[in-house]
Simulated assay, not measured.
Amino acid sequence: MSGTRNPIARRAVLGAALATGGALATAATASAATPKRPHAKELSYTVKSAPLAQGLYQVAHSARNDVLWVTRSVGYPPVTQSQLLKVDPRSLEVLAAYTPPVVDENTGELEAVYGVAVDDVRNTVWVSATLANSLAVYSQRTGRHLAVLPGVQHSRDVAIDQVRGLAWCGALLDGSIVAFDLNTYEERRRVTVEGAWPAGVAVDPFTGNVYAADLAKSRLIEVAHGSDQPRMLPAGEGSVDVVLSVDGRTAYTANQTAGSVSVVDLVTGEMKNEIKTGAGTLAVAVDACTGHVFAANKDAGTTTVVDPRRGTLVAEIATGANTDHVILAHGTAYAVDKAAAGPEAVDSIHRITAVR
């Protein structure tokens, strides 16, 4: 989200006009600069960037198919340009583009896609159709629109719990955290916290506990498996996204207003540290091998790499104006921006690889 006073509206409809099906330009390779910070371990990264399309929002990786799924939606309602893009993670070329169904024949408005997560067991992609207040499911194999799941007011992120067969999503406008069955698509659970704005969500695969970053109250909401009584944990100002450490003992929140990442001990319930990362921190991801946290900083136009154990910033990488989202897959990071760069004003994807 942007750093405005109305982050919900901005998040839902950010983007510029897209010329669909644009050709992929040859990606440039650049070295990421490492900031000189005391006690920070210096690492270097190579970055391969490629323009994709206008209106990029989020990216997810399918290990089963070894592809990236990227959402794009352009402009303000009625949104008439939106696609789910299938992208090669090596060449960063678009392999296929799937257009959501029309929801209003009079205006041509689409069931626009924003958040994205992958269910590799069932070979599906789950997306948040934010403006339609719903989730939608697509086939990874064919791109076919399989289902729409209504009743999620301003849906944002999606998190998959393979062990329990659930897809979780935050409903910003009514303070709910909602779970749907990955097989039947039926609603299975709903926990509502009055006054909350649940944004980013994460699931602990071991315990089944669900965590949602509460943008309204700058805190973390924990919903324990089998309980409807949430626990509130501290986070940084403007907490908008959350990711868990591999062992599930620590949560890291992206704090949009503070421009930071918070380190939250899930055992003691304490915020152990807060590390400045860059203006408008919007998304976080964890490298399972190193434990480093990657933070997408929208206003700064960077992706920063943090060592949460030492509390140090170890790299700062230029990833385009309005860097919107970042994920990790097998030690490689992928970030998308809303830079609207070049003559066709397209947004780009960036592959970030550590030089070891």
Score class of each variant (00 low, 15 high):
Thr107Gln: 06
Asp174Ala: 00
Val118Asn: 00
Ala254Gly: 12
Lys217Tyr: 01
Ala97Thr: 09
Val306Ser: 08
Ser31Leu: 11
Thr4Trp: 09
Asp337His: 14
Leu52Thr: 05
Gly3Thr: 10
Pro35Phe: 03
Val306Asn: 14
Ala212Lys: 13
Ala296Tyr: 13
Pro35Glu: 12
Leu149Tyr: 07
Ala132Lys: 12
Ile8Ala: 08
Ala295Pro: 13
Asp299Ala: 12
Phe180His: 05
Arg188Leu: 03
Ser31Cys: 12
Ala251Tyr: 07
Val243Tyr: 05
Gly200Ile: 10
Pro38Thr: 10
Leu68Arg: 04
Lys217Gln: 12
Phe206Leu: 03
Glu222Ala: 01
Thr281Met: 08
Gly259Val: 01
Ala315Cys: 10
Asn123Pro: 04
Pro101Thr: 01
Ala60Ile: 07
Tyr211Val: 08
Arg64Trp: 10
Val103Gly: 05
Gly291Asn: 00
Asn255Leu: 14
Asn183Glu: 05
Gly226Tyr: 03
Ala117Asn: 12
Thr184Asn: 03
Ser155Thr: 08
Ile8Lys: 11
Ala132Tyr: 14
Val158Ser: 00
Ser128Arg: 01
Leu110Ile: 08
Ala16Val: 00
Leu18Phe: 09
Asn65Thr: 02
Ser262Val: 06
Val263Glu: 07
Gly311Pro: 13
Asn255Arg: 07
Leu14Arg: 14
Leu68Ser: 04
His39Val: 14
Glu194Pro: 09
Gly21Asp: 13
Thr46Gly: 03
Val203Asp: 01
Met271His: 00
Glu93Tyr: 10
Val240Gln: 15
Ser128Pro: 04
Ala283Phe: 06
Gln153Gly: 03
Val210Ser: 11
Ser262Ile: 12
Thr46Ile: 01
Gln81Cys: 04
Lys41Met: 09
Thr268Ser: 10
Ala224Cys: 11
Glu237Trp: 02
Gln256Asn: 15
Asn183Phe: 07
Arg156His: 14
Leu173Asp: 11
Ala300Glu: 09
His292Met: 10
His61Pro: 00
Asp174Trp: 03
Arg164Trp: 04
Ala288Leu: 02
Thr124Asn: 03
Ala199Gly: 06
His292Phe: 02
Tyr76Ala: 12
Asp161Thr: 10
Tyr334Pro: 01
Trp197Met: 01
Ala196Gln: 04
Thr268Phe: 00
Thr268Tyr: 00
Glu187Phe: 02
Asp66Thr: 13
Tyr211Pro: 02
Pro51Thr: 14
Glu186Lys: 08
Leu146Asp: 15
Asp347Gly: 01
Glu237Ile: 04
Thr184Met: 01
Val306Tyr: 04
Leu173Met: 08
Glu93Gln: 06
Val243Gln: 07
Gly165Met: 06
Val79Gln: 13
